[in-house]
Amino acid sequence: MSSQENSCSNDLGLSLGMLSLRIWLGLRAIQTGLEKFAGIKKIEYVPVEIDGAPNVYELTRSIEVKAYGLSYYKGVPAALEDKFKAEPLIPDFFLAIYDKILGPSLLLLGITILLGIATRISLFAMGLVYTSLTIGLILIKQDAGVAWLGIHIIMVAMALVLAKHDKFAILNKW
C-alpha cells in the first residue's frame, strides 16, 4: 500500500469521525432543545375500575400524554430555576433572558452542526452554551452534571480539531 493510499484512508476515517461527532452533538442538542417545548397534556378521563368494572360514583382517572408546543416552553427547568434564583452571582434578569434563549439556541446550533453549516463557529458557540450550563451547575453543586457537561466540551473540542476533515458539510467556510 502506497503512502498516498494510506493518507486517503486516514482522511476518510478522520472525516467519518468528524461526521460521527457532528451527528452526535447535533442530535443531542436538537433533542435537548425540543424537550424544552415538551409538556404533559391531559386528553381524556376514563372511569376508574373497581373489581374489574367501571365504578358507579363517576370517579375518573386522567390519561396524560406528552405533547410539544410553544405554550409548554421552559428553558431552565423549574427545579433548577429556584436554586439559581437563590444564587447571588446569577442576576434575575440574566436568568430570565437565559431561560428564553436556551431552548432556541440548542435547536439552532444542533441543526447547524448536524447539517454542517459554519461548523467551527457553531461548535464554538455550542461549547460556550455548555460552559454556561456548567457554571450554573457548579454554583448549585451538581457535580455529576458538571462532569457530564465536561464530556460534552471534550467532544466539542475533538470536533473542532477534526474540523479540517469536515467533508460532508453544507457550508464549510467558517
Binding site: Y45, P47, V48, I50, N55, E58, L59, T60, R61, S62
Partner: peptide
C-alpha cells in the same frame, strides 16, 4: 383515592 373528578367541583 383510586380516582378524581373530571368536572368542576360544583358541576355534579
Amino acid at each position: 383515592l383510586p380516582g378524581g373528578l373530571s368536572k368542576q367541583p360544583h358541576t355534579n
